[in-house]
């Protein structure tokens, strides 16, 4: 059953060193504030799972919080490389990071299989592609009915899923709107989950009976963090800060510049700082 906690308590109670964790979000609703709290609490040896690995994992990798990443795309969308990820992968700074690399279809199917409690996902994929040569977790199976050869990947099983949503009610039921990505699947394939929200309300308000809702009994912790997805965005609340994504390219190119930015904007600040981004965007 969901408990409403301060963000620091939610991370402290649910995320441990060495955990396999996903902070999901397909451009939208990326849980930046929660990622920053993970940095402040100096978690180590995490396995980071994500389809569209972007800046928040660049930051976690840059501070040395992770030693493994399972992903299908890693970049600064529309801008270029993740410089901290590349520095870790290519030069071992601040530590080496191992990768397990997939396609989007594989990851999406693997999340779905994890949420469904299946051991693996089967799909029509990777034909003529080279990733199966370098990733031993991509195998081939034969359909027992038609004989068609299909790709198989293990289901994603998380220790912890961390996601951001528009709102939760006081029972911890969570509503997602807009581009919903794989957040529902991530929470449902995780042992523990943390959801940061823009607001906590008495009633979720008018929504379609088909809305994407996670019942409170599927979530462990809810933390109220207005603006907590910045520089990503929250549909209906604030827009994506495209300029920050472009600025990150400069900040992250240089090790010292990156460390200074983390110190000033993460270590010396708390989740309440994110509220300023909502006002600025409104």
């Amino acid at each position: 059953m969901a408990t409403v906690l301060r963000l620091a308590e939610a991370i402290e109670a649910n995320l441990r060193d060495g955990d396999t964790v996903a902070m999901e979000g397909f451009t939208h609703l990326i849980p930046f504030a929660a990622g920053h709290e993970v940095i402040r609490q100096r978690r180590k040896r995490l396995t980071l799972v994500r389809m569209t690995t972007d800046i928040i994992y660049d930051q976690l990798i840059g501070v040395g919080a992770a030693d493994r990443m399972i992903f299908s795309w890693g970049g600064n969308p529309g801008v270029g490389s993740l410089h901290r990820f590349r520095d870790a992968y290519e030069n071992g700074w601040p530590n080496k990071i191992e990768i397990e690399e997939h396609s989007h279809a594989a990851m999406a199917n693997a999340y779905d299989a994890g949420a469904a409690g299946l051991p693996f996902a089967a799909f029509r994929g990777y034909r003529g592609a080279e990733l199966p040569r370098v990733n031993p977790n991509i195998k081939e199976i034969v359909c027992p009915f038609t004989g068609e050869k299909l790709a198989a990947v293990p289901a994603i099983r998380l220790d912890v899923a961390i996601v951001h949503a528009q709102k939760a009610d006081r029972k911890g039921n969570v509503l997602f709107e807009g581009i919903v990505g794989v957040q529902k699947q991530a929470v449902l394939c995780a042992k523990r989950s943390i959801v940061t929200v823009e607001e906590i309300v008495d009633d979720l308000g008018p929504h379609s009976p088909n809305a994407v809702i996670l019942p409170g009994w599927t979530v462990n912790a809810i933390a109220l963090v207005p603006g907590g997805a910045h520089p990503s965005y929250a549909h209906g609340y604030y827009k994506r800060d495209n300029i920050f994504y472009k600025t990150w390219d400069k900040i992250s190119r240089d090790r010292d510049g990156f460390r200074a930015w983390i110190d000033e904007n993460v270590i010396r600040k708390g989740p309440e700082a994110f509220a300023a981004f909502v006002q600025r965007a409104a």
Binding site: H28, N109, V180, Q185, R240
Partner: peptide
């Protein structure tokens, strides 16, 4: 859009589905 998931893509769409649905039903 600057990225594949900018807000305007969802705001101006007929509908927005989950990413597993996109890859499973629509693409595959």
């Amino acid at each position: 859009p600057l990225s594949i998931g900018d807000g305007e893509l969802s705001e101006t769409a007929l509908c927005t589905v989950s990413v597993p649905e996109m890859f499973r039903y629509w693409l595959q």
